[in-house]
Design a protein around this nucleic acid. Structure first.
Lengths: 148, 148
DNA sequence: TGCATATTCTTGCGCGAGCAAGTACTCTAC
DNA sequence: GTAGAGTACTTGCTCGCGCAAGAATATGCA
């Protein structure tokens, strides 16, 4: 019965489960850190990041959803929360009455900058610092390869 | 203001966000696949896997929680669901009346073997197949390094 | 022994997520 | 210009998760 399926080799298990475990632990730690120091979830940070990175400093809900790998309804609620706390504002899209854009308020930008310092330090300490530039390059290429 | 913080280099961004994105997409796809073909969540699969891998074919709730990187209460509910569907059974731990062990039923083992075929094929197709053995080895070493 | 403390698991509660249905607006075709 | 189809977002619902409190059992120590 076991023989029906070819199981993974130890190396394969190491590469795959290590990946899963690394992600689970990093995500949890980085989220805890942001929440503890800024009261901002990793999701909230990600949204503020995407907004700040976008060319016009704002994004339509659907674009935000795409970039955040989040459902549209999920995006609505993240933006709800950020808006309720005063970090983001909704505006109607010029020329399309159906559309809504989210953009950071001043307070949102301030929070983002502070949170970014924490977050980048965390990512460096827990992830980036373990690799040489060449290794980072190899990793980046790795992820790129998966997308094809 | 921007100058206060040293931002990530493009390579760093590629390595880090690629990692996040790869995980998000793989996890979603593999979960969808298992649910569609076997009505089993990735969590449920993981629990069945851990139970089947464990030396005695069963695990205490707390050990299962540790290995699954899940809270104890979360573990209680996953096992609840699997038990309700008849794939897992709870038994009291011999010699410790507080303890509970989970172990697969026959149906659970059958489901696991079927799901494993699907899942391994999915992991190979979406992840493992993109790498040489040497690359897998490097990846495994990568994750090992993060744990220290 | 017997009582306080610790351990193991479950339960109550609230939150963040997705799906499907609802609402509001736009576009197409006649 | 208006009906019907399409698009963009929000809302209702349900589910999975963690935390904190609770229940049951075990342990330590007088």
């Amino acid at each position: 019965m076991q023989g029906d399926v070819k199981l993974l080799t130890p190396v394969e298990v190491g590469a795959w489960r290590g990946f899963l475990r690394a992600h689970a632990e990093l995500a949890r730690e980085l989220d805890d850190e942001l929440v503890a120091e800024h009261g901002l979830s990793l999701r909230g940070y990600e949204v503020l990041l995407l907004l700040h990175e976008s060319p016009r400093g704002r994004l339509r809900m659907s674009d935000l959803a795409d970039q955040a790998l989040l459902s549209l309804s999920g995006t609505t609620r993240v933006v709800d929360r950020l808006a309720r706390e005063g970090f983001v504002r909704r505006t109607r899209v010029e020329g399309d009455g159906r559309g809504v854009e989210a953009r950071p308020t001043k307070a949102g930008t301030r929070l983002f900058r502070q949170a970014r310092a924490t977050h980048l330090a965390g990512v460096r300490a827990r992830f980036l610092s373990h690799f040489s530039v060449a290794e980072l390059d190899a990793l980046a290429a790795t992820w790129e390869r998966l997308r094809a």
